[in-house]
Nucleic acid binder design. Structure first.
Length: 805
DNA sequence: AGCACGCCGACT
DNA sequence: GTCGGCGTGCTC
């Protein structure tokens, strides 16, 4: 019976977002399995694309002529049944193409590169042969890197059928292999070999004993050499004499940072921790997909609860997934998990090269790693039989991907939990309102860790009114209170951390004479000053240009810097306290690989008095000698037109407060702000999450925002503003009459950055409670509007967007 | 996406 | 009349 395969091809468009039917050629019959990658012909020409097999059958409803699969790229499926099923759900719920979802779930190296070559199939005249083909009979075809004139001459030859395009897909997913050895003979036969050796052949005799000791196993040659002290030549002799065989052993690139893991004693649990662990362990034992919200102040020992729960999961013969925000995936944190579970742990973080990431992925897929620690995309780790999924700092917005597929790791975690009957633990000191509200309603089980392990009080938070400060002296980023406190720490040999709330802030340049501000040519935004590279940069499209010395508008020389960047803050502070040793940590100083870690290490070794940084220093750091945390601008996020701005401010301030005085020294926190009376700041000052939750819930209720309503954002872009505007109006008209009467449409409006990368953006937000038709309506819309609208209109839907600006 | 087909203006 | 530009539609 003929085998027929259903294949999702790697062509991310609306029209091709469905399986295509292919014939399985005879020589590949019974070798193909669902979840494997294959190469198939696609389209009129001789084009070849990568595809994923999603179904196998012996018949098809399709009655056209079938093409055949060209080759298979994997020996084993790269997507198991669970992940295949999930890719469909993910595509539906994120309004994304299925192929994009599949790629998101896999390491980058699984994406093949397409190469096109031109091959001569008929005689060419001499000029063409030399000018175009340089005398060769095949050349690479890369129209984007070739002069137009050459391309058109080549295309002409192709039309005349003198040359043809040949395709090749290269799979980057290559495992690394090393030479290994394997004994070929039995113990007795090896013993016989030894007796026939001459007395002087000591090395060979040693090799024989070694081989005897490792019968039934294999080992890398390099390791064998190390263990025995024998040379390569001896092993080769052994091979020649038929004692051993040289084989290829797959090796895994082990990321360096993880090699040192000093065993730490396992701490005792507090009563609260024990209660939490017990509840979670009960759930791990059961097959109910239960979700817990573990709410505990900084220092209350959430991590230990996680580790105990993971241990229970492993004991129960299941696997565990632990998600952390990228920013807190620090060596300290990884070491802690590694030292508890050793080689069973795989770590997936952004610092890995594609190859390293693939190796870790393989270790998980082969079942060698049973605990996976990683950031957002680790939620797709190919673990089977998952018993526990932990999501630390569950309120972090980095769990939401801000490009398609726009998934939230929390939702994916829940899907997997339902699939396996696994337990989910959401941990945070300041849970998102959505999660906290669900705990309130009993959807999640609420676990509390109200006290710090060391019985230390939370640090005192002092709020400084910067409006008063401004009246007292000239404009400065530093209040007298903060400067005094910094100097006290320095005299005591203690350290300080200063945080600059970057959101909504940047340094730009403006002309004092005409008010001209340098703008990005591609985007509707001012360029940001970067002193380290001496350029003006656009944060949205990456455009870069030199800093102008005279105003491009009026030729005046009075061009000045405005705004507050970390660099400027550092310079200002250095001028005030000349003998302070200051480290700065921001995107500029940590771009180079490993710099992040290096900076933290040198601060940890007390090579500096003060660490200045943006949000990235607020999280996951644990320096016992830091007794002062200063927030330079506590409220810049408050001014943003986003209903989550209070929540973010509260979370951030609470989080930084936790950074002060974590060991035996008491710490203090200073928050400078222009809004000292704002409830988010006042309640953060008193570490009062519960009160904040109540107040914010009231506001959300009145404004019909999450968690009372769901939100969904539709955005449209086009190079011409009118086209983009027209498209969003069409969408609004299409949707409005069909929405539920309780649903609310905000907009359409231009986005706050109306132009990015030479495209104009318009958006529309829908708030809804229950709208049964909405999902189907939107799916239909993506299909219809895309067809109708003129070329170049791009539509994207973001369910539950995290940023409204 | 990327390819072929087809329709239209500019040219040997 | 033909070459080659780009708009349109399809891909098992």
């Amino acid at each position: 019976m003929a085998e027929i395969a259903q294949i999702i091809v790697d062509v991310p468009t609306m029209q091709t977002n469905r399986p295509y039917t292919y014939q399985v050629p005879e020589q590949l019959e019974h070798q193909i399995q669902t979840g494997m990658r294959v190469v198939v012909p696609f389209g009129n020409g001789s084009r070849q694309v990568q595809g994923f097999v999603v179904g196998l059958d012996d018949q098809t409803a399709y009655d056209g002529e079938l093409k055949s699969i060209i080759s298979i790229l994997d020996l084993n499926p790269v997507l198991n049944q669970e992940l295949l099923t999930m890719s469909q759900w993910l595509a539906d719920s994120c309004y994304a193409f299925r192929i994009s979802c599949m790629h998101t779930m896999l390491p980058n190296v699984m994406k093949t590169k397409t190469h096109r070559r031109l091959k001569i199939i008929d005689e060419l005249d001499e000029t063409d042969l030399f000018e175009l083909f340089h005398g060769q009979d095949e050349i690479d075809f890369e129209p984007e890197n070739m002069p137009d004139e050459i391309v058109s001459r080549l295309l002409k030859l192709k039309r005349n059928q003198q040359i043809e395009v040949v395709y090749s897909l290269t799979d980057q997913a290559k495992s690394k292999f090393a030479t290994g050895i394997k004994p070929l003979l039995s113990f007795e036969r090896l013993e016989e070999e030894r007796t026939s050796l001459r007395k002087t052949a000591k090395a060979q005799s040693e090799l024989l004993s070694y081989l005897q000791s490792m019968i039934g196993s294999e080992i890398k040659l390099s390791e064998a050499r190390e263990q025995t002290g024998l040379s390569n030549a001896i092993f080769s002799t052994g091979e020649k004499k038929g004692w051993l065989e040289k084989i290829q052993i797959e090796t895994f690139r082990t990321p360096k940072a993880l090699l040192n893991d000093a065993k730490k004693p396992i701490p005792e649990l507090t009563a609260d921790q024990q209660t939490a662990v017990d509840a979670i362990c009960d759930s791990i034992q059961s097959t109910d997909p239960q979700t817990f919200l573990l709410q505990g102040v900084t220092g209350s020992g959430k991590t230990e609860v996680y580790l105990r729960s993971i241990a229970e999961t492993l004991a129960n013969n299941q696997t565990a997934l632990m998600l952390v925000p990228e920013i807190s995936l620090t060596p300290q944190m990884v070491t802690r998990v590694k030292s508890r579970f050793g080689d069973l742990v795989a770590v997936l973080h952004s610092g890995l090269s594609n190859g390293e990431r693939y190796d870790e992925w393989r270790r998980i897929e082969r079942g060698e790693a049973k605990v996976v620690v990683g950031a957002r995309s680790a939620v797709f780790a190919p673990l089977e039989n998952i018993g526990l999924i932990i999501m630390d700092e569950e309120h972090e917005s980095s769990y939401k991907q801000d490009e398609t597929p726009r998934y939230h790791a929390r939702n994916v975690a829940k899907w997997r939990s339902d699939y396996y009957g696994a337990t989910v633990v959401l941990g945070s000191a300041t849970p998102s309102l959505e999660s906290r509200a669900r705990a309130q309603k009993g959807v999640y089980q609420h676990l509390l860790l109200p006290e710090r392990i060391n019985q230390q009080p939370l640090p005192a938070v002092q709020v400084v009114d910067m409006r008063q400060e401004l009246r007292k002296h000239a404009e400065s980023n530093f209040s007298t209170e903060l400067l005094d406190e910094i100097q006290i720490r320095m005299s005591r040999g203690e350290q300080s951390i200063l945080m600059l709330n970057r959101r909504g802030y940047s340094s730009f340049i403006m002309c004092r004479d005409c008010g001209f501000v340098l703008q990005c040519p591609n985007c509707d935004i001012s360029l940001t000053l970067h002193m380290d590279t001496h350029t003006m940069k656009c944060h949205y499209c990456g455009h870069e240009e030199p800093i102008p010395k005279i105003c491009p508008n009026c030729q005046s020389h009075k061009i000045r810097y405005y705004g507050t960047g970390t660099q400027k803050v550092q310079e200002e502070l250095q001028a005030i306290i000349p003998d302070a040793k200051i480290l700065r940590m921001d995107v500029d100083t940590t771009r180079r690989k490993g710099m992040h870690e290096k900076l933290l290490n040198s601060f940890g070794n007390q090579e500096a008095d003060i660490l200045i940084g943006t949000q990235m220093i607020a999280k996951g750091l644990d320096f016992p000698n830091v007794t002062l945390v200063g927030v330079l601008n506590g409220d810049t996020a408050l001014g943003l037109p986003d209903f989550r701005s209070s929540e973010r401010t509260f979370q951030l301030l609470t989080q930084v407060s936790g950074r002060a005085g974590r060991a035996d020294k008491t710490g203090s926190v200073i928050v400078q702000t222009f809004n000292p009376d704002h409830y988010a700041i006042k309640l953060a000052q008193h570490h009062d999450y519960e009160h904040f939750f109540q107040m914010e819930m009231n506001i959300r209720h009145r404004g019909k925002y999450p968690p009372y309503f769901y939100t969904l954002q539709i955005s449209v872009s086009h190079e011409e503003e009118a086209q983009a505007a027209k498209a969003i109006m069409n969408i609004a008209q299409f949707l409005k009459p069909n929405l539920d009467k309780n649903s609310i449409v905000l907009g359409p409006t231009p986005k706050s950055i109306a132009r990015m990368n030479r495209k104009y953006y318009y958006q529309l937000v829908i708030k809804y409670k229950q709208d049964t038709r909405l999902h189907q309506l939107l799916t239909q819309m993506m299909d219809q509007i895309q067809k109708q609208s003129r070329h170049g209109v791009q539509i994207s839907i973001d369910p539950e967007p995290q940023n409204f600006i």
